[in-house]
Computed example of a mutant assay.
Amino acid sequence: MPVTRQLDHDPESCEEYGYGLGAPDGILLLRYRSSGGLTFGESRDDFLHQLYWSPDGVLATLHGSSIRFTGPGEAFWVRRAVSHEVRAGDRQTVYRICLREVPPALNALRAGPATIDDEAARLIETIARRTCDETTALTARRRILTGLAAPHTVPPSPDVHGTGFALTVARALSHDPADPTRLDEWAEHLRVSVKTLQRDFVREFGMPYTRWRTRLRLRAARVLLDTHPVTKVAHKVGYASPSAFITAFTKEYGHTPGRHGGHAHRPPSTHAAP
């Protein structure tokens, strides 16, 4: 039988699901949602490998000395006992998957973004339900692990007629929202026309490149505002001045960054072995 419980520290934000606990192929999954931001980590000494994934926002991740963000179709992977920090914005859902086994495709990755395919993402949400039985969950676990891969570093072939180009750019920008590269420069790098790349953005994300980049920067800003001053956040997400950032943020969310309320909630460390 699966182990399912509501954690007491914040009834609004966390549910825990465990399947096959105590076995090497078990899985422990925690689903967080908080009215304020969420922060996991600092100096961690976990007994388990962990995967963080959010279906509705970016994650800011710290491993080493720099902050990076996960992009579309990505999660953050970290091996056991590797110090890290992961932050999410307000009203954002975060899944934290704890494992004993390292997915084969991530064997060389200590910590960093990993791609996650649509089926693996769907199955993560499936097993985070009280109606999910253990047999179904453990079968899903095997498929989740095969749906993870190291991030792609090679641009798609130019004969793909646009498919995948926008996603390549989106992932690169998500890792560094302050990247100033223009659409025409991305198109030249990928050896496609500006029109092809713009069309691919609209097809993939339902909006043109500049609008998508603005939304990315502002969503990334929401993750950082609970722990960083407005001036630093503006620079970190790519705005030339705090005033330009404040204007864009207010236009998008209807209030200034200074009124973006709440303090990041820090869930307790988890050492239970699946």
Rank of each mutant, 00 (worst) to 15 (best):
P2N: 07
L7P: 00
H9W: 10
D10R: 13
S13W: 05
S13T: 14
C14E: 15
E16V: 15
Y19F: 15
G20W: 11
L21C: 09
P24T: 12
L29Y: 02
L29P: 01
R31N: 05
S34T: 13
T39R: 04
G41A: 01
S43P: 00
S43I: 02
L51Y: 08
L51R: 09
W53I: 11
P55T: 11
D56P: 07
D56A: 06
V58E: 11
L62W: 02
H63G: 11
G64H: 06
S65M: 05
S66L: 14
F69V: 04
T70F: 05
P72E: 10
A75C: 14
A75L: 07
A75N: 08
W77T: 03
V86C: 03
R87G: 04
G89C: 05
D90P: 01
T93W: 00
I97W: 10
A108F: 00
R110N: 12
G112P: 02
P113E: 11
T115A: 14
I124M: 10
T126S: 10
D133T: 07
D133H: 05
T135H: 10
T135Q: 13
T136H: 09
L138M: 14
R141S: 07
R141F: 01
R142I: 09
I144Q: 10
G147C: 07
A149C: 07
H152S: 12
D159L: 06
H161Q: 09
G162R: 05
G164S: 06
F165R: 13
V169G: 01
R171D: 12
A172K: 10
A172H: 08
A172M: 09
T181G: 05
T181N: 03
L183Y: 10
D184I: 05
R191Q: 14
L197V: 05
D200N: 15
D200W: 03
R203N: 11
F205L: 14
W212Y: 15
W212D: 01
R213D: 07
L216N: 03
R217D: 08
T227C: 08
P229I: 06
V230E: 12
V237N: 12
G238R: 04
G238W: 03
Y239L: 02
A240E: 13
A240W: 00
T247F: 00
F249K: 02
E252K: 03
E252R: 13
G258T: 07
G258C: 06
H260G: 03
G261I: 03
T270A: 04
P274E: 11
